[in-house]
């Protein structure tokens, strides 16, 4: 390797390393601090490596919460919400991208329109609806409102526009029905978009706090973020050890999902905007 290349490479790594430190630093501190006692977490100047290593924060978290139940609730809600989005958003996205039917433009505009309404505006009316349907404190109430999202439909439509019409027409000539074309020809081409949708939906559902808090009226329906918030933040004081241990507990499954789907995710983001 030539000398100048070497210098350039070293320089690049220094810059990237600094960027990495800025991005990962806070997470690293949170993870390390979750095993420190409260007094050390609050100490100024802050310490990086725990001087006193303790699992008390996690122990307290587990003993005061029904952790398995909350984890199971979160998993059920996140998985079903994600499956619903994959099914409905890709179906509607396909229809909007490839089928011809009256009112298609208007339908797409309605989807776009709902995309622009902030969720806080629809929060209370949506809760009143769920309440009138008798779904308060049920998995139905937690999942149903999020089964299909306008963003997901938009994402799938944009991606499907890039699928060549010739493929679909060829299948039609061979005598395949619409659902068969969708399942056998179109879906297999949507890998990156579906992976992106999976991650975004799973993340949004997993981290959702306000909706499950309001809809779940007994503790056995609380999802993880709600249950974790129970005892860490008080009226006048915050228990940082519990907050950090809880954050790590919520973070882990998401990190695992992301690492598993990372390759697809990056490809999906890179191609959705293109046409």
């Amino acid at each position: 390797m030539r000398r100048r290349d070497l210098v350039a490479r070293v320089g690049l790594y220094v810059v990237l390393g600094a960027g990495l430190l800025v991005v990962v630093g806070p997470f690293l501190w949170a993870v390390l601090s979750s095993v420190k006692p409260e007094a050390e977490i609050r100490r100024i100047p802050a310490t990086w490596w725990p001087e006193v290593f303790t699992l008390d924060n996690y122990r307290e978290l587990l003993s005061r919460l029904d952790f398995p139940q909350a984890f199971a609730n979160s998993a059920i809600v996140a998985v079903l919400t994600t499956l619903g989005n994959l099914a409905f958003c890709s179906l509607l996205g396909y229809a909007l991208a490839k089928l011809r039917f009256p009112g298609k433009r208007a339908l797409f505009l309605v989807v776009l329109g709902t995309l622009m309404v902030p969720s806080m505006v629809t929060f209370v009316p949506q809760f009143v609806m769920v309440s009138n349907l008798g779904l308060v404190n049920s998995y139905g109430g937690l999942i149903l409102p999020f089964l299909a999202t306008p963003f997901g439909v938009f994402l799938m439509r944009q991606y499907l526009l890039s699928v060549p019409d010739e493929l679909i027409e060829a299948a039609r000539v061979d005598g395949a029905g619409e659902l068969r074309i969708f399942a056998r020809v179109v879906l297999p081409l949507c890998g990156p978009a579906l992976a992106t949708l999976t991650i975004l939906t799973f993340l949004a559902s997993w981290n959702n706090f306000l909706w499950p808090l309001v809809v779940a009226t007994t503790e056995d329906r609380y999802t993880l973020p709600v249950a974790l918030a129970l005892y860490s933040v008080g009226q006048n004081r915050i228990d940082y050890g519990l907050v950090l241990a809880g954050a790590v507990a919520v973070l882990l499954p998401v990190v695992i999902v992301f690492v598993l789907l990372q390759r697809h995710f990056l490809r999906g983001i890179a191609t959705t905007g293109l046409k």
Binding site: F123, F127, F209, V214, T217, A229, L230, V233
Partner: peptide, 14 residues
């Protein structure tokens, strides 16, 4: 039922 302080106001209002 225990409610987190964080968003108790929103929960009761809803």
């Amino acid at each position: 039922t225990a409610v987190p302080w964080d968003a108790a106001h929103q929960k009761i209002a809803s």
